[in-house]
Amino acid sequence: MMEKPEKLIVDGKRLDGREPGELRPLKIQAGVLKRADGSAYVEMGLNKVLAAVYGPRELHPRHLQQPDTAVLRCRYNMAPFSVDDRKRPGPDRRSVEISKVIRDAFEPVVFTKLYPRSGIDVFIEVLQADAGTRTAGINAAAVALADAGVPMRDLVSSVAVGKVDGTIVIDLTKEEDQFGTTDMPVAMLPRKKVITLLQMDGHFTQEEFEHALALAMNGCEQVYGAQKQALRAKYSTKPEEE
């Protein structure tokens, strides 16, 4: 159990030295798993998250098949060792809800109508958690879907914003999440600049909310850059040498 630090913001900077609008170090790698059709690995600060995509493939059980569209299924799962106190394996209420909102975040971008009777499965495994795991999971899943060659209208980029000691900050650490007052994960389609995931708990006035949303969208843009870079790193070809 962490002790609450006296201050979370010192001289305008956060405990890890970041500015309020600065993301944690972000590392994204595409195509890290052999058997999956697409995969990605993301580190967002101390978060370590893997995403794998299987499909489009025949959907089982068959009664779930839809005659006119593919069914997108998302499963967010935390490894038992990913948090301080061992988490009981398997889905709990939190991960069921997160899986649902992640699916809602991806529905608008995947061309599901191209694959009737099929299923597209997105598996997100949190290996090490430090607040913002759903956003890291979304960032990984977007790259994994692209890596699988699933036709998409856009990527999905995600980051959380919150309020810590009265200051609006982006990409909260576990400490900031735990002792801050507000947490608001946001996912955005970076080309269209529209929101596909928005959750919030805590307290925001109207001004704080609008400022936080703008900050989050700016952060999503930065994440988008890293996602594109990860895909380019895997798929761009170097010109042949003479």
Binding site: V101, D104, I195, T196, Q199, M200, G202, H203, F204, T205
Partner: peptide, 19 residues
């Protein structure tokens, strides 16, 4: 009038103006 919780649902998107 301040917000204490939010949840987006459904398979579509929302613009900033809509929010």
């Amino acid at each position: 009038g301040s917000i204490c919780a939010m949840q987006k649902g459904g398979a579509g998107y929302l613009t900033v103006e809509e929010i």
